[in-house]
């Protein structure tokens, strides 16, 4: 088992575009759950870099540490050891309050189960990050409607999540992840609840509007059908990044 790092010259796929600034830089990150006999090492020294403008996919079998890694990167889980910087900020050196505030301003989330509030309509759901940041409801909803327009749901802004299809709900989730202009977008299985065609529509959308020069996208997925949208793919196993490739076909070798 090999650990891929940006410093390994024999594996150029492990390196992001050298001209782009780094969005995420993790080195030797470890994370364990439980203690004593029940201690489980979820991350065993992960090295990973993601550049701005890059769409990085994390793949691997269940329990390999993908979700733990994006939780650490997103600052919602504290690492045990190692270093992890997100746009130059290390969450380990921030107070809980500062971490939460920074996360609210700079990170967007797309969840597997969408996690839309069932009692809010599409626009209100998409406006939640702005309201968390203190923007008034009316102004936030107005901006959310504009964002819904961009994801093709402008005419469904009043609909409740229960009135939308899975693909439409994920579009609302994407609008919610993007509305406050975050630098990093973290997605957990964004297409697993969608059919093949809808999954591709969602990925095209994310590739089009989420990936920008000043922004990076990390996607955890099992869905091999969307590997082609990635700039690089990191395969994880047993708490480590085993391999990083640019071509999905290389994952088989």
């Amino acid at each position: 088992m090999t650990t891929a790092t940006m410093d390994t010259p024999r594996k150029p796929d492990a390196l992001p575009d050298s001209r782009a600034p780094l969005a995420v830089s993790c080195r030797g990150v470890t994370k364990a759950y439980g203690q004593g006999q029940s201690k489980v090492m979820a991350l065993r020294g992960v090295d990973l870099t993601i550049a701005c403008g890059e769409l990085m996919m994390l793949v691997g079998p269940s329990g390999c540490g993908k979700t733990t890694l994006i939780s650490v990167i997103a600052g919602i889980l504290d690492r045990d050891e190692g270093e992890c910087g997100v746009f130059g900020n290390d969450f380990a050196h921030m107070s809980q309050r500062a971490k939460t505030r920074w996360r609210g301003s700079n990170i967007g989330f797309v969840f597997q189960a969408f996690n839309l509030l069932p009692t809010l309509n599409a626009a209100e759901n998409a406006a939640v990050p702005l309201m968390i940041l203190g923007e008034g409801r009316h102004a936030a909803v107005k901006r959310a409607r504009e964002m819904l327009d961009r994801v093709g749901l402008g005419d469904r802004w009043k609909s409740l999540p229960s009135q939308l299809s899975g693909g439409q709900q994920q579009r609302v989730a994407i609008a919610r992840a993007l509305i406050h202009g975050p630098k990093l977008i973290v997605c957990d299985e964004p297409t697993s609840a969608l059919d093949h065609e809808t999954g591709h529509v969602i990925m095209r959308l994310m590739k089009t509007i989420a990936v920008a020069e000043d922004r990076a996208l990390v996607i955890v997925t099992h869905d091999a059908r969307i590997f082609g949208f990635a700039d690089r793919i990191a395969r994880m196993d047993d708490g480590r990044v085993e391999r990083i490739v640019r071509d999905p076909a290389d994952l088989q070798t």
Partner: peptide
């Protein structure tokens, strides 16, 4: 609780 968790992840502080 899952929605509260999501709000927390999205930056809602303990006070909020």
């Amino acid at each position: 609780i899952r929605h509260f968790g999501a709000l927390k992840a999205m930056g809602a502080g303990n006070g909020t």
